[in-house]
């Protein structure tokens, strides 16, 4: 990579605009330095003025403050100039970016044009035609090949396919499997239970009798007799 870059380096990648930006930034740096210097000066002057006042030298302090005031104005002005410079450099940098964008668009446009040139409508039509021909040919071959099988064979193939599909599907639960026979439950007596044990047993027997007739057929009679 170094080699490639090394060779490329012969062509400087620095443009005239870059030089201009550098000059502006350099100017800005100088202004910043100046700004700093005045700032320090102001601070010092303030200190000195304070000292003079303490010593009772009012006039000199006033003079100093006047100087300070002037320098403050200078400071203000340098700030404005700094702003201007910064604006200018930003403008230049932005313009450079805009140029790059336009260049990019231009190149993209050219590429697109070239691509479009490479793809003429006739070509597309021709290719589509050829494809169609190809498909037709394929179908012809298909029919020729499948022609070897009789229609019965075809049916067999289809039915096998169906059965394969049926196997691959999950089983649907059938209706009759769904309702499981639940044994009927005895009814809950609506009234609180009273009376002797035999009455209850009788009731149980009766219930059982009605639900499953056979095994307890004789029992109610016995109970009744006992009662």
């Amino acid at each position: 990579m170094g080699l490639i870059f090394g060779k490329k380096k012969q062509v400087s990648r620095i443009t005239e605009q870059d030089k201009a930006v550098l000059q502006l930034k350099q100017q800005r740096d100088k202004l910043k330095q100046y700004h700093k210097r005045i700032g320090i000066c102001l601070e010092k002057d303030r200190e000195v003025a304070k000292k003079l006042l303490n010593n009772g030298q009012r006039e000199r302090a006033k003079l100093l403050l006047r100087k300070k005031r002037y320098q403050e104005q200078l400071l203000q002005r340098t700030e404005n100039q700094l702003e201007n410079l910064e604006k200018m450099t930003h403008d230049i940098e932005f313009a450079q970016i805009e140029i790059q964008v336009v260049n990019g668009l231009k190149r993209g446009n050219e590429a697109l044009k070239k691509l479009n040139d490479a793809l003429s409508i006739e070509d597309v039509e021709r290719i589509l035609d050829e494809t169609r021909e190809g498909i037709e040919k394929q179908q012809e071959i298909d029919s020729l090949l499948s022609g070897v099988l009789t229609s019965e064979d075809e049916d067999a193939v289809l039915s096998e396919l169906d059965s394969l599909i049926a196997e691959s599907l999950p089983e649907v639960p059938s209706e009759d499997k769904m309702d499981v026979n639940l044994p009927e439950l005895p009814e809950v007596p609506s009234e609180p239970m009273k009376g002797s044990l035999y009455k209850i047993t009788l009731e149980i027997y009766l219930v059982l009798y009605f639900s499953e007739k056979k095994p307890v057929k004789k029992v109610p009679e016995q109970v009744a007799l006992e009662a």
């Binding site: 170094g2 490329k8 380096k9 990648r13 870059d18 350099q26």
Partner: peptide
């Protein structure tokens, strides 16, 4: 850095600057 192609130093007269890539 310049030999690696990562920047280009600009030195004209009293101007010292650099452009990074």
């Amino acid at each position: 850095l310049e030999t690696q192609g990562k920047c280009e130093v600009m030195l004209f007269d009293d101007q010292q600057g650099v452009k990074f890539f």
